[in-house]
Nucleic acid binder design. Structure first.
Lengths: 164, 164
DNA sequence: AACTAAAATGTTATAGTATTACATTATCTC
DNA sequence: GAGATAATGTAATACTATAACATTTTAGTT
């Protein structure tokens, strides 16, 4: 699959994410049921984090029973398997770009188009570990959420400003 | 005021936080009303982030009308003035240790005692900025929440393990 | 195929977090 | 004190998440 802020064929991006998730679940010996696959595919319909209740509305359109526990249970499973992440500041969920490689997350989130991209950077890890050590704090996990404007929205804003 | 994970006289810590907030509000020309002061003091009653509804329950014990808008409006004011922070992963609020110096936050949060401490570190800023730049992302603000064990709780756990 | 244990899903109710909209009161400026 | 603005009061509702228990599906065994 591809990164949010790079042009790509999203149909293929989504399909490949689903295929990879299926394969990882097989490897782990856990079930990638119809419901789980459906929810996972819905999450991957775009690179915009989606809330549990938005998912719920979409599930209702399909063949599945749809109440909050349905979706929260499925989200819990996907989170446990490291297939998705939760963006705390948005109460929303997004597909993981490096599943199978359990990690703690850093996200860049565009305030304009609302898309989010997971970034991997060893320097962030190092700094967080170093800061924790300085405070004699035993770090277990962390999350970093970076807000701002993605390249496309910066360009749009500039164009907007120029033409206005 | 003092840091969460350092032994200190918390009564003094709270009092000085309130005094500093009052002085900053005067400087900004905004009103530090009875209600705002009361809520701010409640937030500073400990270094444990507190939720809006926990505050609400405590406000009810006092002289103020107490409904959700009361507390959320007050929290919004305190957030805008940079006097408190919101910990997204906890839906909870905590006093700011460097008010007046508008900044974006990094927190270390103990999973055991649930206290949180705001940390200031220029390296984190640098790395976040650098990562944003690498992705051609225009960073506006960020938040980092680090989970783990504070020094005291590490010591308690070790002692627990030894005696068990 | 039938049996069983475990996992997954269905269903109802409720808890916890936050906002909207409008009324009233307090404060500031003139 | 009148008028404008800011702050607070009040009622209703929207959004997010979990608990508890019933039923169905699946995988492994007989």
């Amino acid at each position: 699959m591809e990164k949010a802020f790079s042009h790509h064929n999203h149909q293929k991006c989504q399909t490949s994410a689903v295929a990879q998730a299926r394969s990882l679940c097989e490897k782990e010996g856990v079930r990638f049921t119809k419901l789980r696959e459906h929810v996972f595919a819905l999450i991957w319909q775009s690179h915009k984090p989606i809330t549990a209740y938005q998912l719920l509305d979409q599930i209702k359109d399909g063949d599945f029973s749809a109440t909050p526990p349905t979706v929260y249970r499925t989200l819990d499973f996907l989170l446990e398997q490291g297939l998705i992440h939760r963006i705390n500041s948005l109460n929303a969920f997004i597909g993981c770009c490096q599943p199978g490689n359990r990690h703690t997350g850093t996200f860049i989130i565009c305030e304009e188009c609302e898309q989010a991209e997971e970034v991997t950077n060893e320097d962030i890890n190092k700094v967080i570990k170093s800061v924790s050590a300085q405070h004699h704090f035993e770090m277990k996990r962390y999350v970093t959420e970076i807000y701002g404007l993605c390249p496309q929205c910066q360009a749009n804003a500039a164009h907007q400003g120029a033409s206005a």
